[in-house]
Design a protein around this nucleic acid. Structure first.
Lengths: 169, 169
DNA sequence: TAAGATTGAGGAGTCAATCTTC
DNA sequence: GAAGATTGACTCCTCAATCTTA
C-alpha cells in the first residue's frame, strides 16, 4: 500500500504468463481425470495420498495437510468418495475427536487403474515439455513460492511426495 | 495409456511441489483481493484487462480470451460487475450477435485504487521471493507450459500483458 | 449451419456456526 | 476454552440447452 513500486515489463510478462498457467492448468488436470476416471483432480490426489499412507489410513487433519485443503472441503469430498465406495471413515481409537479415513480395496484399484493415464498427461504437459534443467528450476522455484504461500509448512504434501510411484512389481 | 513410463523421484518431487503451488496460489490471490477490495482475483483481472483495452471496451469473446475463461463463466461475472456498477454491456454495432463490455468510470477508479495493494502481494510472494534469474526462468517455463495448455494461443493474455502498468502520470 | 452469448440445473467450494471430545 | 470435524447457507463454476443474428 505504501510502497508505490510497480512492475518492470519483464516482471509483468513473467507474472501474466504465470497467472495464465494458474488459470489453465487445473481445468486441464480435471478434464483428463473426469473423462478417463470420473474423478476430479482433487479426488484423485486425495486417493493417491491415502494410498501412500501406512495402512492406507490417515486422520482427516493429516489428509487435509497432504492435500493442501481445508477441513471443510475435505469433509465433503471424503463423504462423496465414501458414497462411491472408494474410502471409509472410522472413529480414531486414540482420540475421540478425530476421524480416520481409509482407502477401500475398490479405492486402491481405482488409483492403480487411473495413475498411468494421469502420469501420461503430466509427462506430456510438464515433464517432456521441459528440459531436465528447466524441470529442476521449476522444482526449486516452486519450493521458494511454497515458502511464501505456506510459511509454516503445514501443507505437508511436499515432504512425502510419493504420489506417483510405481505400484506394480 | 500404453506408455507405462513412471516418474523418477526428481520428477515426482518437482511435480508434487508444483501441484501444491497450483492449489495454494489462487486462494492466496483471492484472499488479498476480497479482503482489500471485495473482488475475486478473476473479477480484478477482468477489470484490469478492460482497463488496458482501446476505449476500455472489448467484445465478450475477446475478453474471454484475455482472461483465460469460458464465455459462460465470463457472462456471469460481467453480470455481477455490471450490477455493482463497474462494467457496462452494449450491443456491438458491427455485429448484431456480439456484445461489447466497457469499464465504467467507477470500474476504472476501482482498478486504480486496487492495483497497488495487489502488486504488493505479487511482489512479496513472487517477484521478491525469487532471484532475477529465477524469475526469468519462471517466465520461460510458463511460456513452455502454455504452449501445451493452449497450443493455439487462443488465450491471448500473454500477448498484451499490460495488467499492472503504472497509470499515474 | 455456425458464431456469439446467455441461462437453468446441478456440483463443488467457502465461511460461519455447531457439535463433540480433549 | 481449544481441537477435530461436520453441516447449512450461499456463491461460483460447469455442462448442456437455448436464443438470436450472420
Amino acid at each position: 500500500m505504501t510502497e508505490e513500486k510497480w512492475l518492470t515489463s519483464e516482471e509483468l510478462v513473467a507474472w501474466v504468463r504465470f497467472v495464465a498457467v494458474l488459470q489453465l492448468f487445473p481445468p486441464a488436470l480435471d478434464a483428463q481425470l473426469e473423462r478417463d476416471a470420473d474423478l476430479t483432480h482433487f479426488e484423485y490426489f486425495t486417493l493417491a495420498m491415502l494410498s501412500e499412507a501406512p495402512d492406507r489410513t490417515l486422520r482427516m487433519t493429516a489428509l487435509a495437510g497432504r492435500t493442501n485443503a481445508t477441513l471443510a472441503r475435505l469433509s465433503r469430498v471424503v463423504s462423496n468418495l465414501e458414497r462411491r465406495g472408494f474410502a471409509q471413515r472410522m472413529p480414531c481409537p486414540e482420540d475421540g475427536r478425530a476421524t480416520n479415513v481409509s482407502l477401500t480395496d475398490a479405492g486402491w484399484h481405482k488409483v492403480v487403474a487411473t495413475a498411468p493415464g494421469h502420469v501420461n498427461l503430466v509427462r506430456s504437459v510438464v515433464i517432456d515439455a521441459l528440459t531436465a534443467e528447466e524441470l529442476a528450476q521449476l522444482s526449486a522455484i516452486s519450493a521458494r513460492l511454497l515458502g511464501k504461500l505456506d510459511p509454516e509448512g503445514k501443507m505437508a504434501a511436499t515432504a512425502r511426495a510419493g504420489e506417483y510411484v510405481d505400484r506394480r512389481a
